[in-house]
Design a protein around this nucleic acid. Structure first.
Lengths: 350, 350
DNA sequence: CTGTTAGCGCATTCAC
DNA sequence: GTGAATGCGCTAACAG
C-alpha cells in the first residue's frame, strides 16, 4: 500500500506552503505564475489525488443548485431522475448543498419560461436542467454562460449550448436498438408501426425525433414496411378510436414501436380490444409500463438509466463547484438497458 | 437542510460522553447496560447516520482482505470482477485495506484447495470468494465461520453457507431470460440447441446447471424442440468437429444458447464454416464475446454485472469490518444486462 | 501574493 | 466504565 501524498508533502516538495497548494488545486487565483507551475509539476509527478472525505468535511461553503425539469408524478421517468439526484444528495450529505426543484409543464412553453425566469432570479450556484423547448433553453443557457453559472443537461443534449456536462442516452442508439429488437422479433414479411405523440407549438420533441430517424433507417435497411401514426397526449379519450382505426386500416402490422414513455397507453388499448399477438416495445420503466410488462401486454422496454442521469449530474456539478477546473463540454452517454419481465426485478430500486 | 446529528449531540441527549457513544456504535463492549440502552434509544430516535467520511479518515486500523477466485486474463469475466474490486479500493482509498488475490485454476480442484489453504494460513480479516467447487468451499466456509472471519460470495450462491453477503446474478432468471430472448427470435417451428461444457470430476458447474434447468423449462412451456450437446474445455481442437457433427446430424436448428462465457468458441466455428443464419446467445461481456458481437456472429450477450459484484462485495465487507454490526445473510441479485451491438458501447468501461 | 492556523466530525488513546 | 484530549488531511480565514 503506497502511502498517498498529502497536501503538506506537495507543499514541501514544491517549496511553498499548504495554503498555496490549496489555492492551486481550487483555481482560486492569488498565486504567482512561478508557484503555480512548481506546484502543478509536483502534483502530476506524484499523481496527487485529493482525499474527498477530508475535503468534504472541512469545506464549509454552502451551495444552491436549481433543478428545472418537467413535473413528475410517482413512478414516472422524471421522478426516477429526481431519485438519482436525491440519492447523490444523500451520498454527499456532508457537502452543504441545497437542491431547489423548479418543475414545469413539459407541454406548455409558457410554464417552462416561467420556471427559467425563476432560476435566473434566484441565487443559483449551478443549474441542472432538461432541455425540453429548444429556443427557450438556448436563451437561458446564454444568460447562464454570461453570468458564469455552470449548468448540466439531463435527458437531452443540445449541441448549440456549452453545458458543463451532459447526462443522457444516445438517442440514435436508442432508435437503432429498438430497430434491432424489432428485427429480431418480427419476420421481414411483417409490417411495423411507429407511434409518436403530437406536440403542440414549434418545440421539438428532440429525443423522439432522433429516435424515429434512426429507427426508420435501421428498419428500412432490413427491408421492413413501416407505417406510422400519432396519438394526442391532450385528448386521451380520442386515442382509443384513433389507434384502433389505424390498425384496422392497416392489416398485417406485427410489431409496434412507441417512441416515448407512453407504451402503456397503446398496450392498454390493445388489451381492452383483446388483441394479443402484437409485439409492443416502448421506452422507460415507468410504473404503468412496468405493469404492462408484467401483464405481458408490453414485450420489452428500453431504459435510459434515469437514476444514473440524476446521480451523475449532481456528482459532476459538485466537482465543478468544489474544484473550479475549466473543463471541456463533456457528454456521458448512459447505458440503455433492455428490460423483459425476467430481468425486471433486478432493476427496480427499493 | 436538516442538520445531521453528530456524535456529540447524541452523547448530550443520552447523558453520556462521545466516547461511550462510539463504543456503542461499534459494539466494542465496555459499556454499562444502562448507558447502552440510553444511547441506542437516542440513536434510533434521531435516526443517526454515521458520517462515512470523517469515520474513514480518523480510523487508523489496517485490514487485509483475501480474494480467492479463478485465474483471470485480460478482458474475461473474472477480470471484470477484479476491476470492480480495484475500483472500490480506489473509491475507499483512505481506508487502509490491502487486497491479496489468490487465484486458482477453476478446472482443477487441487489448485482450488491449495488456494483455500493459503487463505487459512494468512491473517485475513475478511475473505471474498467465488464458490467454484461446492464441497471444498463448504469446508473453507465452515472453518471461516469457526474463526469468525467474515466472507462474501461473488458469482455464485451456496445456500448451505452463511456468508456475510452474496453478490451474484439470479441464475434461474438468467436461464429464463435467455429463454425469453430465444422465444422472441425463433419461431416455435425452429429447434433450439443448448450447449454446455463438460466439467471433470464431481464438482458442480453450479451456475450453468441452474441456467440450463430454467431455460429448458421455459422453452418446453413455449413448445420448442430442444437439442443439446457439450464441448470440451480441455480439448479445444476437438470442438470444431464435435459442433459441426452435431449440427449436421440435427438439421433445423435455428437458435443456439451457450450457457457459459464461451459463446465465441461456437461463434468462431460457425463463422469459419460460413454458417450465418443461426441466432447465437451467450453470457458475459468478455473480450472475445464482444468481438463476436461486433462481427455479428453472436446475436446478443447476457451479462451479470461482474464489476458491480466486485465493487459491492468490497463495499459490503468494509461495512462489516468498520461497523461490527451483526447482519442477516443478505443476497444482492445483480442486474442482468442484455447487450446487442447497438447498446454495447455504453456498457464498456474505459 | 504567501504562510500560518483554527476548525470540520469522528475514532482512538489515556487518564480517571 | 467513562470522559476529555489528540490527530486524521483539508479548507478557509487571516495576518502579513
Amino acid at each position: 500500500m503506497a502511502r498517498q501524498f498529502k497536501i503538506k508533502d506537495i507543499a514541501k516538495q514544491a517549496g511553498v506552503s499548504a495554503g498555496t497548494v490549496d489555492r492551486v488545486l481550487h483555481n482560486r487565483g492569488r498565486v504567482s505564475e512561478r508557484s503555480r507551475q512548481a506546484v502543478e509539476a509536483v502534483l502530476v509527478e506524484v499523481g496527487y489525488k485529493t482525499n474527498i472525505h477530508t475535503s468534504a468535511i472541512s469545506s464549509r461553503k454552502e451551495y444552491t443548485v436549481h433543478v428545472a425539469m418537467p413535473t413528475f408524478s410517482a413512478g414516472d421517468y422524471w421522478n426516477s431522475i429526481k431519485e438519482g439526484i436525491d440519492q447523490a444528495l444523500g451520498e454527499f450529505s456532508d457537502v452543504k448543498m441545497e437542491c431547489r426543484y423548479i418543475p414545469y409543464n413539459q407541454y406548455d412553453i409558457y410554464s417552462c419560461r416561467a420556471a427559467y425566469d425563476e432560476i435566473m432570479s434566484g441565487g443559483a450556484d449551478a443549474v441542472i436542467l432538461a432541455p425540453t423547448f429548444k429556443d427557450v433553453t438556448l436563451g437561458l443557457c446564454e444568460e447562464l454562460e454570461r453570468r458564469e453559472i455552470p449548468y448540466a443537461f439531463v435527458d437531452t443534449d443540445l449541441p448549440e449550448c456549452k453545458p458543463w456536462a451532459i447526462f443522457a442516452a444516445d438517442q440514435k442508439a436508442c432508435g437503432e436498438l429498438m430497430g434491432r429488437l424489432l428485427s429480431c422479433t418480427i419476420p421481414t414479411s411483417g409490417k411495423i408501426a411507429i407511434i409518436t405523440s403530437k406536440r403542440i407549438g414549434n418545440n421539438l420533441a428532440i429525443n423522439a425525433g432522433e429516435r424515429e430517424k434512426a429507427l426508420r433507417a435501421f428498419l428500412q435497411q432490413k427491408g421492413y414496411e413501416i407505417l406510422s401514426t400519432e396519438y394526442s397526449p391532450y385528448n386521451p379519450e380520442l386515442n382509443d378510436r384513433e389507434i384502433m382505426e389505424f390498425l384496422e386500416g392497416n392489416p398485417g402490422v406485427e410489431g409496434i414501436a412507441v417512441l416515448n414513455s407512453r407504451g402503456y397507453v397503446v398496450a392498454d388499448i390493445l388489451s381492452a380490444h383483446g388483441i394479443k399477438d402484437l409485439k409492443l416495445f416502448s421506452f422507460d420503466m415507468t410504473a404503468n409500463n412496468i405493469r404492462c410488462l408484467r401483464e405481458g401486454t408490453i414485450t420489452a422496454l428500453l431504459c435510459q438509466s434515469p437514476e444514473k442521469q440524476g446521480f451523475e449530474a449532481v456528482k459532476s456539478i459538485l466537482g465543478r463547484l468544489l474544484y473550479n477546473r475549466p473543463q471541456e463540454r463533456a457528454a456521458q452517454w448512459m447505458p440503455i438497458d433492455i428490460i423483459f419481465p425476467e430481468n425486471l426485478p433486478f432493476y427496480r430500486k427499493s
